[in-house]
Design a protein around this nucleic acid. Structure first.
Lengths: 221, 221
DNA sequence: GCATGTGAATAGATTCACAGCG
DNA sequence: CGCTGTGAATCTATTCACATGC
């Protein structure tokens, strides 16, 4: 218990913990306990992987029984840092930024959008949801008092690196980047990217190589 | 030409090809040739990885010189299936679906949104961009004539699996899922997911474990 | 000479298979 | 007996290092 949080958890495991978490939430009214097999099925992975993943957090299961849903839920939440609150800013309020700002469910437990920024003076002052858009130049001044932890970049590609630099300078440690560029940031800052055209292109690759649909051939070439 | 496309390209490589592609597009006006080192820098990976990745496509570089930008661009595009056109449908036109439908740049080269579907009768008939929303029930009937290849699910979690089932039944081979659920589909169908709260939760993990910013360290370079 | 292309080495992730324990 | 927890085996991806060929 003393050294919890000092274990090294593989990246691949970290990426799956949120999926387990979501599966467990769906069980909130169900039985108090769940097997690795059932959890695996819900999460779309195999049981050995679930057990291995959960073993990195500690031995929170009971042999012959399974995992206590509530307890596991708490342990995963804690491991992911969701027992604390992370203030989030969205930068860039075009179509996408607005959708994100309004998206119920974007802000799962633990995250709270506390500020919106845009470089366009025409947008400054406008309300989106229950926040007012501030000018990007105010980011530096507001970051500390808001305790900003996460910046969501929803600007065009051309300004994304500049925004990232400002976020880093403001002490923000995590960036979620929707702009189609590779950001460069110092090693102590984490970046995750969401890139729609990359996802489509990956799908295109496998679509192209699909085992030809013999029966009904829509393949117009 | 005969066996191209029969090589087995690792998944990790496929996921990086779009990034190389984007980097190459940025060079369209630049020099005609690029080294693995420079491309690596642009793509945010290392040079050995670039060379290994590109070697799976064939030997398209010139020793002592580098890769011809135009040629490489074409080879990667072809490998990714971007030399053909993939008709895309968006299902679910709430905040997110609308943003996607309007998002310039969502539709990179090779993709074209050809239909919008929603289960809500109140939305049917409404125009978004230059398309009209159809009722979800019409999906089955329209899919073949539209030659739908990719379905983008932007519905709430509760209906996503139903929509996926309809897409599969309609012969759609690729799904991009924005709903926070694990979809189950037959093996011949590809699914990619984009899940904002999962990304935030992953960031939260690393944010929590960040080397404490005890001293005010603004690493600006 | 110089940058690609690629076997060999290493690291990382997944799966197996079973010992361990409730 | 059933299900977890985990070493060992396997598979995948990354990196190294250098022979290869323009």
């Amino acid at each position: 218990m003393a050294d919890r949080g000092r274990r090294r958890i593989p990246e691949a495991t970290v990426a799956r913990l949120p999926i387990y978490l979501r599966s467990l939430y769906e069980l909130s009214d169900g039985p108090g306990t769940i097997s690795s097999e059932r959890l695996a099925e819900m999460a779309g992975v195999n049981a050995a992987k679930v057990r291995k993943d959960l073993s990195y957090l500690g031995s929170y299961g009971t042999r012959g029984v399974g995992y206590d849903v509530e307890y596991l839920l708490y342990q995963i939440s804690r491991e992911l840092g969701l027992t604390q609150d992370w203030p989030v800013a969205i930068i860039g309020l075009g179509n996408l930024g607005r959708a994100l700002a309004n998206y119920r469910g974007f802000m799962a437990r633990g995250f709270r959008v506390v500020a919106l920024f845009d470089a366009d003076p025409a947008k400054v002052g406008e309300r989106v949801g229950d926040l007012e858009i501030s000018h990007l130049d105010r980011l530096a001044g507001l970051a500390e008092s808001l305790a900003l932890a996460i910046g969501v970049i929803a600007t065009p590609a051309s300004t994304a690196q500049d925004v990232a630099d400002r976020l880093v300078a403001a002490g923000v440690g995590s960036i979620l980047n929707f702009a189609p560029v590779v950001l460069s940031v110092p090693p102590h800052v984490s970046v995750r990217k969401v890139d729609l055209s990359i996802e489509l292109q990956i799908l295109s690759f496998y679509q192209q190589r699909r085992p030809v649909p013999g029966s009904e051939s829509n393949t117009a070439s």
